[in-house]
């Protein structure tokens, strides 16, 4: 009896430990058992975070003297490789469930009402940086271009090939802005010039820089890091 039990426990222990050896999302095209388990749990955590999201809860604001100087750079490449976009020729392309898909220039966006915030950008790595961004409220912009606000996702494409997407509820949060300035001056190339999404209710990698295209859609757009295993919702 003990022998059979011992064998059973050993088999269970092996079954538990063997997936751990390959538990690294190393090949998204060929998910193993552990990857499938982690993906399922990540979808579950997306649902929990969507339920936890309160559209009226604001991310904390900070005093000007708490701003991190100099700001910390982070991307999937070195700061010297950051894309340089010409503000004069740059356009924000619109696609998906949007009534008026006319592309927007920088001057037109700067002519819209601007919102300013001093908030914390929390990186998935664990550090944070406090900055002052200002720009156009995304909710106001989406209403202005006639976006279908019942769609599930807002997707973003960047000049450097980066892409990400957010849920509509978070897109309509009052602190979610299409940021155009940092510390009162136009955004600089490594920090997202000429336009970046600033969304303090989500982790840093959900704040795409140098955005060139915005889409409103019901088809899950994924994201650069999300497709490799980062949690999609990644709310703060």
């Amino acid at each position: 009896m003990i022998r059979r039990r011992t064998l059973l426990y050993r088999a269970m222990a092996l079954g538990l430990i063997s997936p751990l050896t390959a538990c690294d999302f190393d090949d998204p095209m060929h998910p193993d058992l552990a990857d499938k388990f982690l993906s399922a749990m990540s979808r579950w955590n997306d649902m929990v975070q969507a339920a936890l999201f309160n559209p009226h809860t604001l991310a904390p604001s900070f005093r000007p003297d708490q701003i991190t100087r100099p700001p910390r750079f982070n991307a999937f490449y070195d700061i010297s490789q950051a894309p340089i976009v010409s503000p004069a020729t740059w356009r924000l392309a619109l696609s998906g469930q949007i009534a008026d898909k006319r592309p927007w220039g920088l001057d037109e966006l700067l002519a819209l009402p601007q919102e300013s915030q001093i908030t914390q950008l929390t990186c998935v790595e664990g550090w944070r940086t406090i900055g002052q961004w200002s720009g156009v409220r995304l909710s106001a912009f989406l209403r202005r271009v006639g976006a279908d606000l019942s769609c599930r996702y807002v997707g973003f494409q960047c000049a450097d090939g980066y892409y990400t997407s957010i849920d509509m509820a978070s897109a309509l949060h009052p602190q979610t802005i299409l940021a155009l300035t940092f510390l009162g001056a136009p955004l600089t190339p490594p920090f997202g010039a000429p336009l970046r999404l600033r969304i303090p209710t989500k982790l840093g990698f959900k704040n795409p820089k140098s955005v060139v295209a915005l889409s409103v859609t019901n088809h899950y757009p994924g994201g650069y890091w999300e497709d490799q295993g980062y949690n999609w919702f990644s709310g703060s």
Partner: peptide
Amino acid sequence: TIGQWLGAAIAWHLACMW
């Protein structure tokens, strides 16, 4: 450590917390 990069480690952490 468990999970060989940050993405996998967070996935394990936020799965096993349940």
